[in-house]
Structure formats: structure tokens, C-alpha cells
Design a protein around this nucleic acid. Sequence first.
DNA 1: CGCAGTCTTGAGACAGATCAACTCACGTGG
DNA 2: CCACGTGAGTTGATCTGTCTCAAGACTGCG
Lengths: 251, 251
Amino acid sequence: MATISTSYGQQCLEAFRDVLPPGTGGGLTADRLCAIGFCLHLAKGEELAPDGHEDRLVYIAAGSAKLAAQPLADTPSRQVLAFHFAGDMISVLRQSAREAWGDFRLVALTDCDLVVFPAERFLDIAQSDPAVLRSVLARSLQALHRSRSRMMQMGHKTAQQRIADFLVSMAERLAGCTSGACAFALPMSRRDIGDSLGLTIETVSRQLTELREAGLVETEGRSKVCLSDVDALARLAGLKNSQSGATPKTS
Amino acid sequence: MATISTSYGQQCLEAFRDVLPPGTGGGLTADRLCAIGFCLHLAKGEELAPDGHEDRLVYIAAGSAKLAAQPLADTPSRQVLAFHFAGDMISVLRQSAREAWGDFRLVALTDCDLVVFPAERFLDIAQSDPAVLRSVLARSLQALHRSRSRMMQMGHKTAQQRIADFLVSMAERLAGCTSGACAFALPMSRRDIGDSLGLTIETVSRQLTELREAGLVETEGRSKVCLSDVDALARLAGLKNSQSGATPKTS
DNA sequence: CGCAGTCTTGAGACAGATCAACTCACGTGG
DNA sequence: CCACGTGAGTTGATCTGTCTCAAGACTGCG
């Protein structure tokens, strides 16, 4: 029996049910899906054991993690594909025919509660409930769209724009803040930030300093940040057109 | 009646059927899908009329096209998200709440035969045949994976690596060639190449020159290219580890 | 309290962007 | 069929932004 029948496991599964389209197959499909879900706790720094022969779908019930590519032995460059937080449903593809970048691994940035599903079986069950399958598809298409938009930006954005973009994105995902001011703690290191944006650790630091001097960001300790004006950052990142009447940019 | 009942239209739809999972719902689901498909011909340079209120799935029966982001009025930087060729099935999201990069448009690089489906209705029908829906999902997940791998690379690859990567990718998609030597014609301009790789037109040109001087590439006229060693290019691009016994890299 | 590792800051090197000519391919019209 | 013009592509010089290498400062841990 894969499922851990503790109140802890139940709690994770409960959280998972929330992402399924409400109503539809009733709780029935959800029940069947939960039955194949494997609850797992990762301590900070631990990683989800790679699985060579099966794709997996992972639901993050709590905590934060990074999806990282383990570089090939001789390659020094690390890479972070994406950060994921509580509530995210992500697909971790099996470490297929060792591609250009080696393995993809899910690493816990903070303590994490996960629900792991074998992708095949998950889809087999979801298949019986088209609404669920379609919901998963919709999520994927959106993820694809986001990934493409992001890729597009990576192509020609300056370091400052990337950092600003990153901060705006984190404000939204970590603090649910899309405008105004907000404060939160970044669960990832400067290195992780750099690796996810294609920048060096030094450049990340320098740009944060510049933003601090510009009065847009304040930092406290290693991880806490305070954004005084998310909109201004978004504008800096090139996410919004600077047509918001206020703050005529002089830069 | 949206479908064009000419031998031309029929031909496009025939091609489309090939992408559906064979067997499954018999030709029945395929029939229903074809019924809502709209056949369309785009001349070189024309673009698929943007549609503000509906996502669409587009099958390319013949020709080649680029998925491009029309920049906001004052932004000079163009962007190309991806190139697509005959046989590709792509999703063109509606020009939603004008995002960071303006509209996404499908523009014909050469004369194109397309089959356009309203995404909603397509999925409604596919929903009745879970195998089809799942097939579409599988395609999306793969596309997502490719997009992420690509994004990852964009982060820290040199201009030469990007060009090499691009050429290898085109060799595979346009000439079905993954190794050895091959020749083909690039349907897109240098500007499009640059816009898709986040490089300037000048840099693209320079890198092609370098590769030519290195004996890896030959060019003829504006579009024809001849790759003498796809594997070497792939190695240059960092796609394969340079452990292929031969050519110990001195760089 | 002291150590180790993370983060910050600085100086120099290099890749790619930018600006500016120039050349050439390709389509057009004579 | 060939001359011509236009726009695409190439090449060169310079300049900016980011990486690299190298100290130094701070945080957070034992």
C-alpha cells in the first residue's frame, strides 16, 4: 500500500483535491487518484529520488522546491528550470536518454510535503473522467505558454530586467501580490536565482544593490526582501507598458 | 459550412488525420474533428488573422511558418517564439489581455496550407475520445519539455552555440537529418533567426561566417545551407558530450 | 565566540550590441 | 535576356553590459 495512512498523509491528499475541477466526476475520480498518490516529505536540500523508468506528476502540498538540471560531470554550469511552491502541480519527466543537460531533479528549497503520482496511472484514471484530463491539459497548455513567454524574454533582457521580472514573479507567487508594496522571504539562494535567470551570482547581487539604491527593494538578512513598488518593478522588467500615467520614467 | 469541400481542402484534412492516434476511436472522432476544421492557404508573408476571442489549434499541412510576437508599438525588439513546419500541430492562444509582448501571430514563411480548429470545440469532441485527448496532452507535455530545455539553454549559451543548435535543429526538422552531412534551404530570414535566438542580425551573420571558415557550414545564395558534419555542430552547441572519441576539443 | 559559507564589492577582460558602410542576391522592367 | 534597383546580407570599428577573477564583509551555524 503506497499511500501513507496517517493524518499527515491525509492532509496532503486533501490539499491535492483542491486542484481538481470541482463537481465533475464527484469525489470519485479524486478518490481513485488519491489511491495511487504517494505522500512524501523532503527536508530542506533533499531531492526527490530520480526515477529512471517512469514519468511522474508531483503535487506540492507545502513548501518550495526547484526543478534543476544536474549538469553533466565536466560542465560547470548549473541550471534551474523553474521554482515551484505550495499548490503547484508539476510534471517530472523520467531521466530519459541522457540529454544535453543531464537529469532533471526536484530539490527541496525548504521542507516540503509532496504527493507523487506515476504519470501513466494518473492519466489512465484521469482518462475515465474527461473533465479531469482536460483540466490537466489546460494546465499544461498554460504552462507551455508561460514557458514560451519566459523563453522569449530570456533571449533579450538585461540583467536588471530579469531580476525585476523575477522579483515581480515571486511577489505574486509567494505573497500573492501583484501591485503596490509587499515583503516576503526568498526560499532560494542567490546562486539558484542566478542559475534560473542565466546570470552569475555576482550580477544578481549587483542588480539587487542597484534596485536597493533606486529605492525599489530593501533586503534584510539573506532572504527577506521588501518591494516598495511592484508596478515600478514590472515596468522595469518590461512587463507592462509604461503608460500608467504616473512615474514618467527618466531612465 | 466552414469546411471547404474541394479536393484541396480534402487533401489538407487527409494529412491531418495522420497525427491522430491510429485505431482508437476509429475514424469517427477524426471525422467529427475534420468537420470543424477550417482549411486555409496563406501566401508567403501573410499571417493568420488574429482572433481576439478564441484559442485555436492549427495543423500545418504544408509549408513553414513562424509564431511571432508583435511587439508593443514603441518596442523595437521583435521576437520569434518558434518555427513550425509541415506536420506540426500548434496551439495559437487568443490575443489575451495584452500581455508583456503584445500579440502572438502565426506568419507564413513560405506558402502554407493550414487546418484551423477552434480549440474549445476541438477539445469538446476530443473529450469524447479520451485516447485523442490524451494524445494531445502528451504532445503538449513534450512541447513543454522541449520549450523548457530550450529556455534553459538560452540562459547561458554563446552566440555560436545558439547558431549551431539552430542549424542542428533545422537539419532534423527540415531534412530529417540527425547526423552526418546534409543540405537544405532555410525558409526564414536572418532577422527571423536572430529574433528566435535573441541575437542581432549582424551576430547571426558573423557566426555563420565563422562556421563557414571552420568548414562546418557552406552557404549558397540567401537560404541554402550545407552542413558537412551535423555531429560536430551538435557538439559545438553543447548538445552532445564531446566524448565521441574523435575530435578532442582544443578550445 | 569563531568558523564556513554566502553574499557583496571592485577591477579588468570579453562577447555581443550598436552604428555605419559596403556587397551581393534576387526580382523587376526594359 | 540582361541591366538595374532594392532590400537582404556581410563586414568593420567601437561601445556597453556581463562574466571572470579576486578580495573583503556579513550571516547563520556549530
